[in-house]
Design a protein around this nucleic acid. Structure first.
Lengths: 182, 182
DNA sequence: CAGACATATCTCGACGTCAAGATATTCCGC
DNA sequence: GCGGAATATCTTGACGTCGAGATATGTCTG
């Protein structure tokens, strides 16, 4: 039902073949989707990492800088906001911010109104590091998808949007860990 | 061009909105795809992890057991084959196999013909652990996708297959790290 | 206004992974 | 059959993340 006539066989096809041989009774159609989602996300991430590395950044560094940048002037968020934006735990945020502070990319200061709150703010250096990397990163993302024809690309986007709906990824249901967008 | 009329807005839409406000000149259409790919892969993984945890397994444990199981009787692979099947480094494989051996799920032995090679074999206990978890896992994957209508699901699968082609994920080009399929 | 609860951040220890290189074994060309 | 290259696995140290809980501050209720 999914017309893979003539398509080049990939690593997931081989896994499906193995299951078909070992357990022909199984329905592997969900695996065909979820296996690819997982695998291709990892392959794409590796390609993104390569460009970040060329600019002397780790993915996690770019993620934080990007979250601050897109929040708009004065490029400032609290650790809690970073937790939620990046789907990471608070301990991870503390650690990330410490290292970005050490590189001079952000500053930290207590809020005076509510002294529980910390304000993490992009420095000029941090903004410059983001700017210097962002164009190459965006071009990289565009290049990765350039091999898709418009129909395929729309299908992928539409399918992912539907998946997002199913996963309940709407404003702040904030269930889980890992992953992010830059 | 991608008709998101009436679609519920998700976390990626909010990120795109922020960029549209901060840098209206940017083309964020690739981010709309790749951001979702990354985020949803992580959200799906969290759901899979939950079922593995109910069965006393970590994802990485199930991954290894599954690779051995689907390889067919005698359920035996070398560490190198596991590296390639699971997209992990050899050091990680050594570590994983040691811990699975400690749990009694696999055995390790040197090959007699070629003493560089190790044979990692599923034990009865390991096979049982896989069997006990596999059905729930498969049902979980099916359930995650159950909210998609057939057209959406085909679009997602087709889009991912096209992406796989673009990423060059064909037999053993083995570029990168992370991710896997179960 | 005291006490209980809520919120925000940080600390600590454990874990899984990677990258680079060490070791052991086999293959190959001469 | 010897020496160097190739292959397979393991070792080591560093790193990023998590989960649970500690600390500090703020809010609300009676």
């Amino acid at each position: 039902m999914t017309g893979d006539q003539g398509r080049r066989r990939d690593a997931i096809d081989r896994i499906l073949d193995e299951w078909a041989h070992e357990r022909p009774d199984l329905d592997v159609s969900a695996l065909a989707v979820i296996g690819r989602l997982s695998r291709y996300a990892a392959l794409v991430q590796a390609r993104l990492d390569a460009v970040f590395a060329e600019h002397g950044l780790q993915s996690w560094e770019f993620d934080v800088l990007s979250a601050l940048r897109r929040s708009g002037s004065p490029y400032e968020l609290t650790p809690g906001e970073l937790d939620r934006a990046l789907l990471i735990t608070s301990g991870t945020t503390t650690h990330r911010v410490q290292r970005l502070e050490a590189r001079g990319f952000v500053t930290r200061r207590r809020d005076d109104e509510d002294r529980r709150i910390v304000r993490v703010r992009l420095t000029g250096t941090g903004l410059a590091a983001h700017e210097a990397t962002h164009d190459a990163h965006a071009a990289n993302e565009t290049r990765i998808l350039a091999g898709l024809d418009p129909g395929e690309r729309d299908a992928l986007l539409g399918g992912l949007q539907a998946l997002g709906r199913v996963l309940g990824d709407a404003t702040d249901e904030a269930t889980a860990l890992g992953g992010d967008a830059r």
